[in-house]
Design a protein around this nucleic acid. Structure first.
Lengths: 105, 105
DNA sequence: TTAGTGTTTCGTCTAATTACGAAACAAATG
DNA sequence: CATTTGTTTCGTAATTAGACGAAACACTAA
């Protein structure tokens, strides 16, 4: 019986960068983020985006869920609609992390 | 028999962003890019990185292949070693695309 | 209460990703 | 020629991701 020593291999930043990158690793999700950034003033409903996308609504909903879980967006219930918008906290963290990842001497 | 009309839904940039993000969507690959950026002067062999990573060499090789195919790194044969380095073209494209993706008014 | 609306969740299927060890490779050396 | 060395490719298994339609949900309005 041996004690498995837990060694940390990746930094927190590396793991966060991987996590944010992963969730942006699909064109539908990039499209959604673009859409929300372009329309911060207006309301963005799932249906608004669904009209422009060639995927089932349930599939879109799944992508929205992933973005929400990653902290990049948030949804505000406004029955029977759900209004989505950027989660500023997560969005700026991602921006910050990716920024320093790419911009080094 | 109907003609399937091919409609473009995502912009080229959205697809490129998704592609670069996807390949950065794994901590091992973020680690590799960090490693290569930090050591642009020195030689970076697969084995150098393998020593610091808790994965099989064949697995590392697979990750290197993905980064190479995405255009983020390149390998120069220097027998029996293979020296890896950043692919400046792809790296700056990714930096540029992600930069404008995150930095909009 | 019943019907309607916009959205999500569930169940399912297929395809892609991640991982490993064994085997193959390519060049240098004994 | 046979070994050795660093690396990749192959074969395979396990897990995760992406997609769909049907069903469920939550709230409004009739």
């Amino acid at each position: 019986m041996e004690i498995k020593e837990k060694v940390k291999v990746y930094t927190d930043n590396q793991e966060k960068i991987a996590r944010y990158s992963k969730v942006l690793g699909h064109p539908v999700r990039v499209f959604i983020m673009d859409f929300l950034v372009k329309n911060t003033d207006k309301c963005c409903y799932s249906g608004d985006m669904a009209e422009e996308l060639p995927i089932a609504r349930s599939t879109l909903s799944q992508h929205l869920k992933e973005l929400k879980e990653a902290g990049l967006i948030q949804g505000e219930i406004n029955p029977p609609y759900i209004k989505y918008c950027i989660n500023k906290t997560g969005w700026s963290e991602a921006k910050e992390l990716l920024g320093t990842f790419f911009n080094r001497k």
